[in-house]
Amino acid sequence: MPKVKSTEKKSYDPKALGAQIRDLRKAKRITISDLAERTNRSIGNISEIERGISAVTVPVLQEIALALDVELNWFFEGQAKAPEKESMWIVRKDNRRILQMQSAGLTEELLSPNLSGPLEFLLTTYMPGAETGEDGRQRVGDEAGLILSGSLELKIEDETFLLKEGDSFSLPRGGKHHCKNPGETNTIVAWVITPPTF
């Protein structure tokens, strides 16, 4: 999927974009004042952006994306206008927000309509050899996953398990785990995380 270039003109709904920024900031446990400091903007300006009151240029959005550790395309994926009656409940396949981490060999798609609810629903694609960092990942919430295709090497604390298509797992908050695709084809995992921690 191509990345959005800064020279492209994009029409967007300021309120929807502001809600995306706010939801992602909260899911990452970042305060408005922290985001303001990271982007060299005032707290009032960040608040106005999140409420859709202040316009957001691409350079400003690039600063916010960098501060929130996502690629710029995160805010442009899923910008298709969903019918109002389903926007809070349903995510159509062609309207998912997608985060591509090419250097890590990972692609994550947000399957839940937003990050402001009690849970986060994700689809992660691991390219062959891709993994979640040597030190693993600390869980701040409860997580569960289902292997939809391929295989996943899952290390929980000191135990390592090889999971295949159809296998599932559940991980309590507070521990660490490490994921790796040991195979030669993509591995796809559906995740449910509560509370959202994207």
Rank of each mutant, 00 (worst) to 15 (best):
L61D: 08
T39K: 00
K164W: 07
M127Q: 14
L66G: 14
F198P: 10
A67P: 09
K9G: 07
F198R: 02
T31P: 00
M1S: 15
L123T: 00
P83C: 05
K176L: 07
I64R: 03
S103E: 11
K10V: 11
K26C: 07
T160F: 05
K155Q: 14
G175D: 06
Q20F: 07
E86V: 15
E120I: 10
L66N: 15
T57P: 00
I156R: 06
V140S: 08
G44K: 05
I98D: 03
S149T: 14
T124L: 01
D135N: 07
K81R: 09
C179W: 14
L66S: 15
S168D: 06
L72D: 02
T132M: 00
E8P: 02
L123C: 06
A19Y: 07
S87Q: 14
R173L: 11
P128S: 08
V4R: 01
Y12V: 04
V56F: 10
D142N: 09
D167S: 09
I147W: 02
S112C: 03
I53W: 01
R92T: 10
D34I: 07
N73M: 03
N95S: 03
L146D: 12
E120T: 10
D158M: 04
P128F: 05
N73S: 15
M1D: 10
P118A: 14
L148H: 08
G117K: 10
D142M: 01
R25P: 03
N73D: 14
S42T: 08
V91H: 00
T132N: 01
D34A: 15
E71C: 06
R137L: 12
W74H: 13
A104I: 06
D158P: 09
N186C: 11
N95G: 01
L106Y: 03
K26P: 01
E108P: 00
M127Y: 09
E159S: 06
Y12N: 08
K15M: 12
V189R: 01
I90N: 04
A36I: 08
